[in-house]
Simulated assay, not measured.
Amino acid sequence: MSYTMKQNDANSLIIVIVNYRTPELTIDCLRSLVDEVRSLAGTSVVVTDNASGDVSVARIQAAIETEGWNNWASVMPLQHNGGFAFGNNAAIRSVLKSNNPPSYFLLLNPDTIVRPNAIDILVDFMNRHPQVGIAGSRLEDPDGTPQRSAFRFPSLLSELDSGLHLGIVTKLLSKWVVAPPVPKDKCQTNWVAGASMIIRREVFEQIGLMDEGYFMYSEEMDFCLQAKRAGWSCWYVPQSRVVHLVGQSSGLNNTKCPSKRLPQYLFDSRRRYFLKNYGWLYTALADHTWASSYVLWQLRRVIQRKPYEDPPKLLIDFLRNSFFIRGGKFNPPKTS
């Protein structure tokens, strides 16, 4: 399946939404895009369905037809569920091969509701800053409470802070904390959340598509790192506001549900990121740093009689997936 842009001006944009068994969320997301699409000439939306195996494709297609969105929205069913990068790449690859590819691509989660002018603001920012390759929106709760969505790349010091859970250490290492406090104004950052992330076409042309070796999580972080190494900057643009119903599409980080055991793909993604980008020695040091500091935190928690609030069997699962158990081999990056 191929897609053709009506024009290739500075505002031409493809929005990609990856659906997996969340048809109602996806439809609500599409509904929030109606005014955005009208205000931005040359904008289209592609919903890729990661082989949901339910009513998703039929339900989303029916909504597109009923609501009269056919001129700008379409559904691309995929043969299997290859994860977040796979679902996005399927649409992006097809569009890049077209005769008139767009200036920008926007990755948008199905569990988002776009606030007025959010997309227009991102496109305008990219038009004004040609050296910027990637930009992300301010993600927020329905009541407007901001979510942390501008991040730093992880390091040995951030792994120490993450495992230790000690306030004074967090303050001392504030420059290395992966998820710093939410910035109030636009700023350059290492990476932004893939829930609402705009990417310049030339970035894909230079570094390739997202690494499909990640099933879910860390793929946008890895992509931003590759872009940075190629000379592209990444920015956080809080004037672009997008409601993010955290955990509704992935099932993780949903504060309304009890803490669940972390899925295998999350550990796989972390391990892949460190091995691919920093090598086996750094990965071994990162794993040792987090595990040893986390053990210290657990000892302190028991002594201070604090409740256990982490996911079940977190330390055991981490160690089972660490460099020391699984070694330093990983599959080469997948981008096609």
Score class of each variant (00 low, 15 high):
S259D: 11
D287Y: 04
Y278H: 12
R300W: 14
L285H: 02
V242I: 15
H288E: 06
L299E: 13
L262C: 10
Q239D: 15
S240W: 06
L296Y: 07
V295Y: 08
E205Y: 11
Q239W: 07
L266G: 08
R241W: 00
D222N: 15
V242G: 04
D287C: 05
W232T: 02
N277A: 01
K276V: 00
S250I: 04
G247P: 02
Q248N: 14
L285W: 07
G213K: 01
R241Q: 10
Y278S: 07
E220N: 12
Y217H: 11
V246P: 02
D211A: 09
E220T: 12
M216Q: 08
E220Y: 06
N254W: 05
C224W: 03
W280Q: 07
V243L: 08
V243P: 01
Q226A: 13
T283G: 03
Q239M: 11
K276M: 00
S250C: 10
S240M: 09
R300K: 15
N253D: 13
W232P: 00
V237F: 02
F267S: 12
T283H: 09
L252N: 12
R261C: 14
H288F: 14
A291F: 09
P258V: 02
D222A: 13
L296E: 03
T255H: 04
D222Y: 07
Q298A: 11
P263E: 12
R300H: 14
Q248H: 14
R261K: 15
L225R: 03
P258H: 06
L285D: 03
S233W: 03
K276L: 05
K276E: 03
M216G: 01
A284V: 05
R271L: 05
G208F: 06
L285P: 00
S240P: 09
S259I: 13
F215L: 07
R270G: 02
V295G: 04
P258F: 06
C257F: 12
G247Q: 03
K260N: 11
P238Q: 05
V242Q: 07
L299R: 14
L285F: 10
S249N: 07
E205W: 11
Y294D: 01
G213V: 08
F267G: 11
E205R: 14
P263D: 12
K260C: 09
L245R: 00
A284T: 05
S233E: 06
I207K: 00
D287L: 03
G231A: 10
M210V: 10
Q239H: 12
E212A: 07
L209Y: 08
A284R: 01
H244Q: 07
K228A: 12
R301D: 13
S233I: 02
P238F: 01
M221Q: 06
V246A: 08
R261N: 14
P263W: 08
Y217S: 07
L225E: 00
G251R: 02
W280K: 10
Y273M: 08
S249P: 00
V242F: 11
C257Y: 11
V295T: 12
P263C: 13
V295D: 06
V237K: 01
A227M: 09
V243D: 02
D287P: 00
S250F: 03
M210G: 01
P263S: 15
E219C: 09
V237D: 00
F274W: 14
F274C: 08
D211W: 05
Y294V: 00
N254I: 02
Y273L: 10
P238R: 04
